[in-house]
């Protein structure tokens, strides 16, 4: 698989430049994969996501970001979106007066057959087009519905890379299961996903992962390997042995888990 996104020694300071949120981080995201960035709250995951997207308030002080072989470090948010990067937000905005239809069409470059394209995007996220077309993206949509519309808008753009920022936040378990299926549908449409999450059950759909710990990228590897390291860093050995890597995920024997925990000085 080709490398779609590459971060090289990226450091992101706070706006006042007094603290470092993400420190000298490097990793690669392969085209067509689901790549999870995991880590506990405050480890810099969302900061990293917004920086890759190019939000004005998130600027790197050092390092380079390459997308599809192009140096995008100094590109604006709009330029990056036009290149094929988009972001589905953790808490998408509620905008009075803007219909679901209009919202989804905003990012579609080819404006022919808009209705069909919107319908297809809504079906991909398991929303009935006829019921949602003319709804307004305000408080009348539930949290789960709004997140699905956000995903539909991202999918309709047909980007090369979708950054999903904590897509599970505020959702119940039944809905999360459905979201995992949607991620696989997106992957089947040849889009790459950068999945920002702190939950192992969400991350289990990922092919690869990067563990972010207090602003440092500790490990990038196949996702289960990264997850064991995450549990070891968090001191969750029993949880790791008991709860992880079931349901078709990659399993590890106790000896492997013990070794990783030993490296962390936890045995």
């Amino acid at each position: 698989m080709n490398i779609l996104l590459e971060l090289k020694n990226v450091t992101i300071p706070t706006l006042d430049q007094k603290c470092v949120i993400v420190n000298n981080v490097s990793f690669e995201v392969r085209e067509g994969s689901i790549h999870a960035v995991i880590g506990p709250n405050g480890s810099g995951k969302s900061t990293l996501a917004y920086t890759i997207m190019g939000l004005n308030s998130y600027r790197i002080s050092q390092g380079k970001i390459y997308f599809d072989g192009i140096d995008i470090t100094n590109m604006s948010l709009t330029e990056r979106a036009k290149l094929g990067i988009t972001l589905a937000w953790q808490e998408p905005a509620r905008i009075d007066g803007l219909t679901v239809f209009k919202y989804i069409t905003l990012g579609i470059k080819d404006k022919s057959n808009l209705q069909e394209k919107v319908k297809e995007a809504l079906r991909t996220v398991n929303l009935e087009p006829e019921r949602y077309y003319n709804r307004i993206i305000d408080e009348t949509l539930s949290g789960g519905e709004r997140k699905r519309v956000e995903l539909a808008a991202a999918i309709a753009m047909r980007p090369k890379l979708i950054i999903l920022d904590e897509p599970d936040s505020g959702l119940d378990m039944i809905v999360i299961e459905d979201f995992l299926n949607i991620f696989n549908k997106i992957k089947a449409l040849n889009m790459t996903i950068l999945l920002i999450t702190h939950r192992e059950d969400i991350g289990m759909v990922a092919d690869y992962g990067t563990l972010l710990w207090r602003g440092d990228a500790i490990l990038t590897d196949e996702f289960p390997i990264v997850m064991v390291k995450y549990c070891a860093k968090a001191g969750l050995k029993e949880f790791c042995k008991r709860a992880l890597f079931k349901n078709g995920g990659k399993c590890f024997d106790d000896e492997y888990i013990d070794r990783i925990f030993r490296e962390e000085g936890l045995l």
């Binding site: 979106a81 972001l87 905005a93 007066g97 905003l106 990012g107 808008a153």
Partner: peptide, 21 residues
């Protein structure tokens, strides 16, 4: 930012928001 992440410029995003408002 949300609208610009869909490829709109800030001016285009502002016009869309005015129209909606």
């Amino acid at each position: 930012d949300e609208l610009m992440a869909k490829g709109l410029t800030e001016d285009e995003a502002t016009e869309i928001l005015i129209e909606a408002m």
